[in-house]
Computed example of a mutant assay.
Amino acid sequence: MIHTLFDESIALLQQLIATPSFSKEEAQTAAIIEKHLNGKGIKTERLLHNVWAFNKHFDASKPTILLNSHHDTVRPNGDYTKDPFTPEIADGKLYGLGSNDAGGCLVSLIAAFVFFYEQTDLKYNLCLAATAEEEISGHDGLERILPLLGKLDFAIVGEPTQLQLAIAERGLMVLDCRAHGKSGHAARGEGENAIYKALADIHWFNSYQFARVSELFGAVKMSVTMIQAGSQHNVVPSVCDFVVDVRVTEVYTNEELLELIQHFVSSEVKVRSTRLKPSSIDVNHPIVQAGIALGKTKYGSPTTSDQALLRIPSLKMGPGDSARSHTADEFIYLEEIQGGIADYINIIQQIV
């Protein structure tokens, strides 16, 4: 059965690659996933471009595992030498946009779900969710359907991790900061220069170390990434705007960090969103221990995924390599998908 699932997974992934599915434009790939599952007698639900299903013998008295990955992609960059929508197989690699991020994970999770779908003696229910808008952290992807999935106890999130165990993930806050001064004529030394006020806060963002340090990630990372001020050379600017990228670790909540930052800096600080929260799962959780028993290593992931939207324990794991994501001539090794199917099944079998 594993061999058949592998062949079907490659064929499905080739269809997905050949079908453009930029974030917010995933209707056709959602239809492909629906057709694939329905063709196996699996009843699906759909809202917008999100497709989900439960195992055949769902039992509300049992806990539920969410199996989630996404079918949207970024737009191909200008360095592609191959057609990003041609699913070419060469030298053991399947090329194409979304093959690595996160098509290989998605089709492997689908295969694992199909493997368990008809089983009657599972200790857990399984909920498969193929979702949209992950690449833009959109509101109409996983976040939109979570209330419809019922009680979920923990999740496996399919992202390329070389099939190792990402037991924590950084959160993200983007801060819009504004330093206020007073305009004046530069030649007469009038006014209060907002740029100088902003520089003091920028120095703080660059040098401050928060007290709590994550064992997995180290310190919280803050980076000033944009700055804008001034209208002409002889006018002291009254306003200086700058943007800060804050990568939050699991030892702080977004809200805690925001409160601390607003206390320490003089600039006005507005957060665009606190919804992309840091996440983690206890190393003693059964799913983590099952992975360790299979020889997997655990680590903290620096990248952000739909895991940030979950409020339940979650493990990020999948075939492929995060370093290939969003690169030109994206690819995944066929053997990685084969390993992904086997590992997802094996790790779930340890607990179900």
Results as ranks from 00 to 15, higher is better:
residue 251 V to L: 08
residue 271 V to Q: 15
residue 264 F to I: 02
residue 249 T to R: 07
residue 258 L to P: 00
residue 287 I to N: 02
residue 251 V to G: 06
residue 237 P to M: 09
residue 275 R to F: 03
residue 277 K to I: 01
residue 268 E to T: 14
residue 250 E to T: 01
residue 283 V to P: 07
residue 272 R to E: 12
residue 285 H to G: 07
residue 290 A to T: 07
residue 289 Q to H: 10
residue 239 V to F: 11
residue 258 L to A: 03
residue 279 S to Q: 14
residue 279 S to I: 03
residue 235 V to T: 15
residue 257 L to Q: 02
residue 263 H to G: 11
residue 290 A to K: 12
residue 251 V to T: 12
residue 289 Q to E: 12
residue 257 L to N: 03
residue 241 D to M: 10
residue 266 S to T: 14
residue 238 S to N: 13
residue 234 N to L: 01
residue 251 V to Q: 14
residue 248 V to G: 00
residue 243 V to I: 14
residue 290 A to I: 02
residue 288 V to F: 08
residue 280 S to W: 14
residue 286 P to C: 02
residue 289 Q to W: 08
residue 275 R to N: 10
residue 235 V to C: 05
residue 260 L to R: 14
residue 235 V to R: 12
residue 274 T to A: 04
residue 244 V to Y: 05
residue 257 L to I: 02
residue 240 C to A: 12
residue 240 C to F: 04
residue 255 E to A: 06
residue 290 A to N: 08
residue 267 S to P: 11
residue 242 F to E: 00
residue 252 Y to Q: 04
residue 245 D to Q: 07
residue 250 E to V: 05
residue 240 C to R: 01
residue 259 E to Q: 15
residue 245 D to M: 04
residue 243 V to G: 05
residue 253 T to A: 03
residue 275 R to Q: 10
residue 262 Q to G: 06
residue 274 T to Q: 06
residue 280 S to A: 14
residue 260 L to Q: 15
residue 237 P to N: 09
residue 291 G to V: 04
residue 275 R to V: 06
residue 290 A to P: 09
residue 275 R to D: 04
residue 266 S to L: 13
residue 266 S to Y: 09
residue 254 N to T: 06
residue 244 V to F: 05
residue 240 C to Q: 01
residue 252 Y to C: 02
residue 278 P to F: 07
residue 235 V to H: 10
residue 259 E to M: 11
residue 268 E to I: 09
residue 265 V to L: 04
residue 267 S to Q: 07
residue 253 T to D: 01
residue 273 S to I: 10
residue 238 S to D: 15
residue 255 E to C: 00
residue 255 E to V: 02
residue 234 N to H: 08
residue 248 V to F: 10
residue 277 K to W: 02
residue 257 L to V: 04
residue 276 L to E: 09
residue 252 Y to P: 13
residue 268 E to Q: 15
residue 282 D to K: 07
residue 255 E to Q: 10
residue 283 V to G: 05
residue 291 G to P: 04
residue 271 V to M: 11
residue 286 P to N: 05
residue 242 F to W: 09
residue 266 S to D: 13
residue 284 N to P: 00
residue 240 C to T: 00
residue 286 P to I: 03
residue 281 I to L: 08
residue 279 S to P: 00
residue 290 A to F: 11
residue 241 D to E: 15
residue 286 P to E: 01
residue 275 R to K: 15
residue 277 K to D: 00
residue 255 E to D: 14
